[in-house]
Computed example of a mutant assay.
Amino acid sequence: MKNPTATTKAVLDEIARPKTRSSLFWWLLDHYDAVVHSAEGRRHDWKGLCATFADQGLTDRDGEPATMHTARMTWWRVRKEKVRLDALRAAERAERESRAAANGSRPSRFPKGEYGPPLATTPKTAKPKLPMTLERQAELGLQLSTAEGVVITKVTRVFKLRPDGPDYVFKEDGTIVPSTNLASQLAIRQEMNIDSGRPVNLKTEHVYAKLELRSEYR
């Protein structure tokens, strides 16, 4: 007779990680933050990575070595899934806090879940320090933050629709740094456009509007 605990775990594992996704997909999702951090804003060398994936036994859904195309599309799907999961967790946290407020109780000081890096202790008026790669671009005369109301990159200008709206950072090629869920959605669409040889902001107007930004070509 099978162990009921082991059976339950096997079933739940299959539900959580269906075989409709590849081993490469799950690895990239598990290590998403580390992958993004290691890339430092650069585009991935998919040809070299595919060789490494094959060496490490990371394959596509059919168990075959990933090609440049399948690896790129897998990364795009991973990024979409990350946006979905982050939005789901944010909604769950908001629901817990809403229920706690309705019950007249304060939410736990340390609720369960994932925690980001410690909050910065710098004054609110201080501008965030740009990553090194973006600092270098700024030295070359590019304005890469919407803090002043306009971003000028090599291909586009980006304007704030609301002066007191959130600040965003853009790369030299016109793509946004994925600092929020909406920014990640825009970044995914922009990278798909670039990979397909299309204009970076093709069919992105609705996402820009949600970000309270407007883009136009220089």
Score class of each variant (00 low, 15 high):
residue 2 K to C: 06
residue 3 N to W: 05
residue 3 N to Y: 06
residue 4 P to V: 06
residue 10 A to T: 08
residue 14 E to Q: 03
residue 14 E to W: 07
residue 15 I to C: 13
residue 18 P to H: 05
residue 18 P to I: 00
residue 20 T to W: 03
residue 21 R to Y: 09
residue 23 S to P: 15
residue 24 L to F: 14
residue 24 L to W: 10
residue 25 F to Y: 15
residue 30 D to F: 02
residue 32 Y to K: 06
residue 35 V to H: 06
residue 35 V to W: 09
residue 36 V to N: 14
residue 41 G to V: 05
residue 43 R to W: 00
residue 45 D to M: 02
residue 46 W to S: 09
residue 47 K to N: 03
residue 51 A to R: 15
residue 52 T to K: 12
residue 52 T to D: 03
residue 53 F to D: 01
residue 54 A to R: 11
residue 54 A to P: 07
residue 55 D to S: 11
residue 56 Q to C: 07
residue 57 G to C: 10
residue 59 T to K: 09
residue 60 D to R: 01
residue 60 D to C: 11
residue 61 R to A: 08
residue 63 G to F: 04
residue 64 E to M: 15
residue 66 A to Q: 15
residue 68 M to T: 07
residue 70 T to Q: 06
residue 71 A to F: 09
residue 73 M to A: 12
residue 73 M to N: 14
residue 74 T to K: 10
residue 77 R to D: 12
residue 80 K to V: 14
residue 81 E to Y: 09
residue 83 V to N: 04
residue 84 R to T: 13
residue 89 R to H: 05
residue 91 A to W: 05
residue 95 E to P: 00
residue 95 E to T: 07
residue 96 R to K: 12
residue 96 R to V: 14
residue 96 R to D: 07
residue 97 E to G: 08
residue 98 S to N: 08
residue 99 R to Q: 12
residue 99 R to E: 05
residue 99 R to M: 13
residue 100 A to C: 08
residue 102 A to T: 09
residue 103 N to S: 09
residue 104 G to T: 01
residue 106 R to S: 10
residue 106 R to T: 09
residue 107 P to V: 00
residue 109 R to T: 04
residue 110 F to S: 03
residue 114 E to G: 15
residue 115 Y to R: 15
residue 116 G to H: 14
residue 117 P to G: 03
residue 120 A to K: 03
residue 120 A to F: 01
residue 123 P to R: 08
residue 124 K to M: 15
residue 126 A to K: 11
residue 133 T to L: 12
residue 133 T to W: 07
residue 137 Q to F: 05
residue 144 L to C: 08
residue 146 T to W: 02
residue 147 A to Q: 07
residue 149 G to Y: 10
residue 150 V to D: 12
residue 151 V to L: 06
residue 151 V to N: 05
residue 152 I to V: 12
residue 153 T to P: 10
residue 154 K to M: 11
residue 161 L to S: 11
residue 161 L to E: 15
residue 162 R to K: 13
residue 164 D to Y: 05
residue 165 G to E: 09
residue 165 G to V: 11
residue 168 Y to M: 04
residue 171 K to R: 13
residue 176 I to N: 06
residue 178 P to H: 10
residue 178 P to E: 09
residue 179 S to G: 01
residue 180 T to I: 09
residue 182 L to N: 07
residue 183 A to F: 06
residue 186 L to T: 07
residue 188 I to S: 14
residue 192 M to E: 15
residue 193 N to G: 07
residue 194 I to K: 13
residue 195 D to C: 00
residue 200 V to G: 05
residue 204 T to Y: 04
residue 205 E to Q: 08
residue 205 E to F: 06
residue 207 V to S: 14
residue 208 Y to A: 13
residue 210 K to N: 05
residue 212 E to T: 14
residue 214 R to V: 08
residue 217 Y to I: 00
residue 217 Y to Q: 02
residue 217 Y to R: 06
